[in-house]
Simulated scan of single mutants.
Amino acid sequence: MNNAIYLALDFPTWEVTDQFLEDNQLHGVPVKVGMELFFREGPAIIEKLKANNHPIFLDLKLHDIPTTVMRAMKNLAALEVDIVNVHALGGSEMIKHAKEGLLSGSPKRKTKLIAVTILTSHDKETMNNQLLISGELKDSAVHLADIAEQSGADGVVCSVHEAGSIKEKCGSSFLTVTPGIRLANSSIDDQKRVATPKFARENNADILVIGRSITKAENPYQAYRQAIEEWENGAK
């Protein structure tokens, strides 16, 4: 098992998820649970995955007023997953309250809090013209990461393309969790800022999130092994 690679479980139900993991011998691999699966199955999905020894990144991207996020995070803390997240665009006070809720809700205090910078489905044009955030995308991602770090977050979700600059600003121990990962022979789908595992490793990513390159592959187990190979040794 490689704890740097989290498999995105973008499936509609636990039954489909469990079948996929069993059929492809992906027992105990680190996984990301997003809104689709969590909103269908609730906390029970986390307990089932933990029972099968899967490290878990719970990807709900909380973004609300500080008090609401704090109370929600206190409830999520009881699930004792490995990683949870909020949107950095919620601002410093929201991130601080999220961390407060996380610490107060879990006696073991092992869950990492990370903050989403700019979604990897966005590009500079979207950011400038639709979100009305001016400037370069990398500058905005680094700025949001700096706010997150100063507010108590353990890391950020960012594109691989911003990971190195974020490390320079926030320090080597500040986690960079990078979605938008595609194997060397995969399509980019609806992502804008993508990268291979090899490129991610070379550009200071700590954790990769990989979904469709594995889940839609003809042989998902082989694709997962390929991801590890590309991460550790580069594409062949």
Rank of each mutant, 00 (worst) to 15 (best):
Asn3Tyr: 13
Leu7Tyr: 07
Leu9Asp: 01
Pro12Leu: 00
Glu15Lys: 14
Phe20Gln: 11
Val29Met: 07
Val29Phe: 11
Pro30Val: 10
Met35Gln: 12
Glu36Trp: 08
Leu37Met: 04
Phe39Pro: 10
Arg40Ile: 03
Glu41Tyr: 06
Gly42Thr: 02
Ala44His: 00
Ala44Gly: 00
Ala44Ser: 15
Ile45Trp: 11
Glu47Leu: 00
Glu47Tyr: 03
Lys48Phe: 09
Lys50His: 01
Ala51Gly: 12
Ala51Asp: 13
Asn52Glu: 15
Asn52Pro: 02
Asn52Arg: 15
Pro55Asn: 01
Pro55Trp: 10
Ile56Pro: 11
Ile56His: 01
Leu62Lys: 03
Leu62Val: 02
Pro66Cys: 00
Thr67Tyr: 14
Thr68Gly: 10
Thr68Trp: 12
Asn75Pro: 05
Leu76Ile: 01
Ala78Ile: 08
Ala78Thr: 12
Ala78Gly: 06
Leu79Asp: 01
Asp82Pro: 01
Ile83Arg: 11
Val84Cys: 07
Asn85Ala: 08
Ser92Asn: 10
Lys96His: 08
Lys99Val: 14
Glu100Phe: 08
Glu100Ser: 13
Gly101Thr: 08
Gly101Lys: 03
Gly101Tyr: 08
Ser104Tyr: 04
Gly105Arg: 07
Gly105Met: 01
Ser106Val: 00
Pro107Arg: 09
Thr111Phe: 00
His122Met: 14
Lys124Asp: 15
Met127Phe: 12
Met127Gly: 04
Leu132Ala: 13
Ser134Leu: 04
Glu136Arg: 13
Glu136Ser: 13
Lys138Asn: 13
His143Thr: 12
Leu144Lys: 05
Leu144Phe: 05
Ala145Trp: 01
Ile147Gly: 00
Ala148Tyr: 03
Gln150Tyr: 06
Gly152Thr: 01
Asp154Gln: 10
Gly155Arg: 09
Val156Lys: 10
Ser159Gly: 02
Ser159Ile: 09
Ala163Ile: 14
Ala163Gly: 09
Ile166Asn: 06
Ile166Phe: 02
Glu168Ser: 13
Ser172Cys: 06
Thr178Lys: 10
Thr178Gly: 06
Pro179Arg: 06
Pro179Ala: 06
Ile181Leu: 13
Thr196Arg: 07
Thr196Asp: 13
Phe199Ala: 15
Glu202Pro: 08
Glu202Ser: 04
Asn203Ile: 00
Asn203His: 14
Ala205Glu: 00
Ile207Glu: 07
Leu208Gly: 03
Leu208Cys: 05
Arg212Leu: 11
Ser213Tyr: 09
Glu218Thr: 14
Glu218Cys: 05
Glu218Met: 13
Tyr224Met: 13
Asn233Asp: 02
Gly234Gln: 12
Gly234Val: 08
Ala235Leu: 11
Lys236His: 14
